[in-house]
Design a protein around this nucleic acid. Structure first.
Lengths: 353, 353
DNA sequence: CGTTAGCACTCTCCTTGACGGAGTGCTAAC
DNA sequence: GTTAGCACTCCGTCAAGGAGAGTGCTAACG
């Protein structure tokens, strides 16, 4: 939730106390049931101090103001994107993940504490479960990747492996073809010497050093630069997601496999995250994009709750959830916020070397 | 296809030429259309030299023999598992992936030739596309992983990273807590010394060496043993799949999201592959499991076409496709066979060092 | 003046029933 | 052995009708 916005904003606050209460109920009821909510059901299931007729009046006003919407002439009301937005910004309040869940999540991470490779996977799984929708996690990516170490390994006379470790402990391997034949002993010596020289440097800085080198050393440094600067694009595409099951159960997706396919396509490419990223740099806290707020067209039927995580200015990733606009924003926001903090803590632990 | 079985097996061959032809048509038609096929449609769409009535006679015989099946009293016939089996073993013949597709696939692999990490992903994608169903690819796994190299990296005084490279160029990283404080220079020296001693050894052999060591060296070697022997289980669970879209379009899965969820659960766990593996060791070629032949219950509605790939006795993975029993076996078998060979070639290139 | 009860109207969803299409098995003729 | 004809069965679809839920409007109430 974007906290920079003051809770008493004038434009939106043409709503009376009662209208706010009703809007809140409509959203909650609709999110829970999935069916358009009418005046009668509302009075039946919740203790509103008024009769259905009064509710109807207020609903009509809410509709005029664009917060709720009629799908059919005579079927209850459904929140509009604007209604959801108002709900999230003004009616939701501060929500936090229930403590028992926090415990359980921490416990699960303790199990794989030492296996970096599994963090992302686990984060996706856990987030999906906590939020009850689809989760998305991108690998953390250093803003300017710095080299910690690299290693050269001979596979064949002219073919080898460059294994590169960055300051944030990401490991990357690339095969390389030597310009000349090289054997393991020589490669190891070369790597040791070069690492001593360029450890701690960024891609640019390594490139500068490469200028002065020649022969095999020059070649190797060039490859290091490529791998190091390639971390951006390559790692960005590494996106885990989990929990499609959750969202498939929703009535929004029971309309045949076409819907499902669209969703899968969205997740596979991960392109939608790319579209979102520019808008995210601004705030460090959890951000919510509802329906038409989303930059990409394919997302206009979805709600997205995302946060960056990692260490500010050093290494960052993105994590969040995706669901129909009719989603439990409270739960999603608290889950995403908690996971982002947890992952950040884990990374801080790793990076503070 | 299991080629060990001679094409002229006696038990099954109670079928006349004409019955074989009809069965072939039924399977092809049903696979293509997805609707039960009757005598009339068959004569309309294909040049059979006989009238619908004759076809009906033969169909009745095929049904009595258990090759086709009546779903409703009066809706065409559908092949049984046994019918598919007969089709695959006796009627399919040798199929090979069309040459243009071969070219395209090779081309795509050339693009990522040097990026090991992307092979699996690409294999899954390409296989799904070629076969038109869901593909599954497990990471190649050495039968007895041998150490090629490892590296120690200090993160914090008592926390470090062990990066381990096996003979087959798999890279694995684990965080470790040192029993005593250690700094980078000392760790590097230690790693160099130990690598020189244990490079090329298997987990067991390293364990034997560890016996003789003490102090930090002993600790590190123990960790190496753990990581090395852990490669089995850990990598096995690394399963990529692709192409769910393809299968969701099938009428078998239009029956609501429950079906889809079942499929997703199947793929996520990858448990079903585990069940299949014991039965696979036997044959090196592509193997086909149809319906009730599958060991796991959840698979009984599916057809599975799988093959191992890699280098015999050294490093192997599994790759294959999964679809409804009503799947295009010809296309699947040729795709899987081709991909298995291609991946094997790639690995041979890597491993022949 | 805000709130509530009553009423006529609308629209969806589900059930029901009828009908055409497709396929079968049987029998009789070629 | 093959084919034509026929009666029968069953599925899928489509239209009609009723139940349920909700609305907007009007009029009465405190």
């Amino acid at each position: 939730m974007d906290q920079s916005e003051p809770p008493n904003q004038t434009a939106d606050l043409a709503l009376s106390e009662r209208q706010q209460a009703i809007l809140r109920l409509i959203v909650q009821e609709y999110v829970a049931s999935g069916r358009a909510v009418g005046s009668k059901t509302l009075t039946e299931r919740h203790r509103v101090g008024y009769s259905p007729a009064t509710i109807r009046h207020e609903m009509a006003d809410l509709e005029a103001a664009g917060f709720v919407q009629h799908l059919h002439t005579s079927g209850g009301r459904v929140p509009t994107d604007r209604g959801y937005r108002y709900f999230v910004h003004h009616l939701l309040g501060e929500v936090e993940l229930p403590f028992p869940e926090q415990i359980m999540i921490r416990h699960q991470f303790r199990q794989v504490e030492l296996q970096l490779e599994q963090w992302m996977e686990l984060a996706a799984t856990v987030l999906a479960e906590a939020a009850g929708t689809v989760s998305v996690v991108t690998a953390p990516r250093p803003t300017t990747p710095r080299l910690r170490h690299f290693e050269l390994i001979a596979l064949q006379p002219r073919l080898g492996l460059l294994i590169l470790v960055t300051a944030d402990s990401a490991v990357r391997q690339v095969m390389v073809r030597w310009p000349e034949e090289a054997e393991q002993a020589a490669l190891s010596r070369l790597a040791d010497a070069l690492v001593a020289e360029v450890a701690g440097l960024s891609a640019e800085e390594v490139a500068a050093r490469a200028e002065g080198a020649s022969g095999l050393a020059r070649f190797v440094l060039d490859q290091v630069v490529i791998a190091l600067s390639g971390l951006d694009a390559a790692e960005r595409t590494e996106i885990r997601h989990s929990g499609i099951e959750n969202i498939l159960a929703q009535p929004e997706f029971s309309g045949g496999p076409a819907e499902t396919q669209g969703l899968l396509a969205l997740l596979r490419g991960g392109a939608f995250l790319g579209a979102l990223l520019p808008q995210m740099e601004a705030g460090p806290d959890v951000q919510v994009f509802i329906g038409d707020e989303n930059p990409a067209d394919e997302l206009r039927r979805f709600g997205v709750v995302v946060s960056t995580y990692g260490i500010d200015g050093e290494v960052t990733g993105v994590l969040g959830v995706l669901g129909p606009t009719r989603m439990a924003y409270g739960r999603s926001i608290s889950s995403v916020r908690y996971m982002a903090r947890l992952m950040s803590d884990l990374m801080a632990n790793l990076y503070s070397a």
